[in-house]
Structures are given as C-alpha cells and as structure tokens.
Amino acid sequence: MSTLTHFNRAGEARMVDVGAKPESERLALAEGRIRMQPETLRQIQQGGHAKGDVLGIARIAAIMGAKRTAELVPLCHPLALTKVDCEFEILDETATGSEPAVICRVTVATQARTGVEMEALCAVQIGLLTIYDMCKAVDRGMSIDGVRLLEKRGGRSGHWVREA
C-alpha cells in the first residue's frame, strides 16, 4: 500500500512537490447523486421551478467548482483545466424503486504534472449542492450520496477504473 503523500517525515502537512514530474494528459471522471421527492424531480424536469433552470445552473456551478478546487482543498495544486464536462441523468421512481434521484457525472481533463481527481470530485459536489440549494424550499429532505471517482487516466499510476 502507498503512503500518504501530504505529510512530511515529522507528520506535518505539506503540498506535494510535483516539479520533477513530466507533464502528461490527465483525465478524471467522478459521479454522485441527489435523492429527492417525486414532486421535486417533476419540477426540475418541467422547468417550472421558481428559481429557473435547475440543471443548467447546476452545470455551470459544477464547472466553476472544478476551476476553483485549489481554493477549497488546502493542499491541492492549482491547475489549468482543458476540459470540464458535466452531465445529469434523471432517475425517476420507476428506475430506482424508491426515491427519484439526479446523477451528476463530471469529466475533467488537463495537461499537467498532477491529476484532476480532486477537480472532478469537487465539481460533482458543487453541482449537487446547487441542486439542493435551488430546491430546498420545496424539499429539505434531499440527500447527497455516492460521490466517487469512476476513472482516472495519466501520470505514473496510469489508468484506473472503478470495478462495477
């Protein structure tokens, strides 16, 4: 098993030195979901929400979240992102067998010395939090879960895909 890289020998937090690493194409794909009441999902789908296009605004928020990750995660390197793509999948109660949900999937890419996993994970969280914020007036019981990395490419560790 690998060691934790964000600590020095004395156990103090540090930003990892990536200066000697070669730049390479990096990509990460992450996802998460927000569960909600059927009526909340209907309002999102029909575009009848008082605050506007919930998924459109959440998409922009996810992109902004990816771009601002280094400001939110203390030891994360600031990166020049080359791609941020956010998709939403709607699962109604017939698809889930219980509470409907919206799945948020974000792909982030860059050409850099370190990966973009944190940017993809942060983007998913911000996108889902935006849905919560926009819909909380009608459904405070929404829950966010299942946030996880699905795939990463590039760098020394190569290609990794989550097992199904």
Rank of each mutant, 00 (worst) to 15 (best):
R113D: 12
R113Q: 15
T114A: 08
T114F: 12
G115N: 01
G115C: 05
G115R: 01
G115V: 07
V116H: 04
V116Y: 00
V116S: 06
V116G: 05
V116F: 09
V116A: 01
A120C: 08
A120Y: 02
A120H: 02
A120N: 00
L121Q: 12
L121G: 13
C122K: 07
A123L: 09
A123I: 03
V124L: 11
V124M: 09
Q125L: 11
Q125D: 12
I126S: 04
I126L: 06
G127R: 02
L128H: 11
L128N: 05
L128S: 04
L129W: 06
L129H: 10
L129V: 05
T130F: 01
T130A: 04
T130L: 03
T130G: 01
I131P: 09
I131D: 13
Y132C: 06
Y132A: 04
Y132S: 00
D133Q: 06
D133F: 00
D133W: 03
M134Q: 02
M134N: 00
C135D: 05
C135M: 14
C135L: 12
A137S: 14
V138G: 09
V138I: 15
V138S: 14
D139H: 07
D139T: 08
R140D: 09
R140I: 03
R140M: 03
G141M: 15
G141T: 14
M142S: 04
M142K: 05
S143A: 15
S143H: 14
S143M: 13
I144W: 08
I144L: 14
I144R: 13
D145E: 12
D145K: 04
D145A: 09
D145Y: 05
G146D: 15
G146S: 13
G146T: 11
G146A: 15
V147R: 07
V147Y: 05
V147S: 11
R148N: 05
